[in-house]
Nucleic acid binder design. Structure first.
Lengths: 165, 165
DNA sequence: TATTTAGTTCGGTATTTACCGAACTAATGA
DNA sequence: TCATTAGTTCGGTAAATACCGAACTAAATA
């Protein structure tokens, strides 16, 4: 039957996406699968119960990891009137939030490279500097401008996504 | 004394960079510190022994992590004639290699999003599709083009770095 | 007021990861 | 040939992480 096929495909995709987000976003295995499952669940949100059953995990683990994903601004939930359950879904802004995180990471990288550059310059301040080391310092300087352009690109792409809404 | 100051500053920087690479490049704590230490050691390469002493780690751990960093194309070594020791240094191409890895990651991300898109389209192929879900599919398509531009940017920046050599 | 529902919190366990020491190899040197 | 140097490999341990179950809370319902 068609429906069973889709459920099977969903399982496979959750697993594949799970492994990806685990390593690339440093999420715990379960967080990663919850996020993947929600990303593939369109229309309505997904209840706590459904997650428990689909991912075969305990209540407590589901709870902990849902909170973690919420604190990372990757998911959110809504409620239905007259229904006590929460319905979880990926955060509408999660792509933008992830981009923000990436931008922060690059800014951090820039800061570190600036410190390294200072350190290198201090080392050579009194010594005469050979061409090889001069090259290294220039390379470092160039890398910082490269990181700057990365940050600019990410910010531009973020604006593009915001426009789209 | 000046020299002691520099050694102290190096220690602090190794620690700061260590924490950064640990989380951002998912390196083990020791790998991360080795890499940081090498990045701050200009001129000559650094011997196995010096790493052992500076990072207060065992022979075996240093060995394992040096191999790991080499397999990641982040560091390399050279030898001096009449000297059996290896002198480790960061790989001249490590920034480019890291960029390559980042490009691969984005390509992987693209592949996954394409699969998700296929899955979504399959879900809706027989059903009539409401405006909200149509929007979700469009968003997905847009994200893929966004990933494409990320990849292109990274490739351009990589070319720039190669030119510089 | 007692019961069910929906989720949280907390203490413990199992798995994974990081690191270590001791025994080993391969090459050089006495 | 035996000793030393430079590093590797392997088995084990300690620490961190992920997950679980049981007891709990807070709100709704009977």
């Amino acid at each position: 039957m068609q429906k069973d096929d889709l459920i099977e495909e969903k399982k496979l995709l959750v697993e594949e996406m799970g492994v990806y987000f685990e390593t690339c976003d440093t999420l715990s295995p379960l967080s990663s699968r919850i996020f993947a499952y929600l990303a593939l669940s369109l229309d309505e949100g997904v209840s706590f119960e459904e997650l428990q059953e689909a991912l075969e995990a305990s209540k407590s683990s589901i709870s902990t990891n849902l909170q973690l994903l919420q604190s990372m601004r990757r998911i959110g939930y809504f409620t239905k009137p007259g229904d006590r359950k929460r319905y979880f879904k990926i955060d509408d802004e999660q792509i933008i939030n992830r981009l923000d995180d990436k931008i922060e990471t690059w800014k951090h990288e820039k800061k570190i490279h600036q410190k390294v550059l200072c350190y290198k310059k201090r080392i050579f301040q009194d010594v005469e500097i050979d061409s090889e080391n001069l090259l290294r310092i220039q390379y470092n300087e160039h890398y910082i401008t490269f990181v700057d352009s990365m940050i600019q690109n990410l910010e531009k792409l973020k604006e593009n996504l915001i426009q789209l809404k």
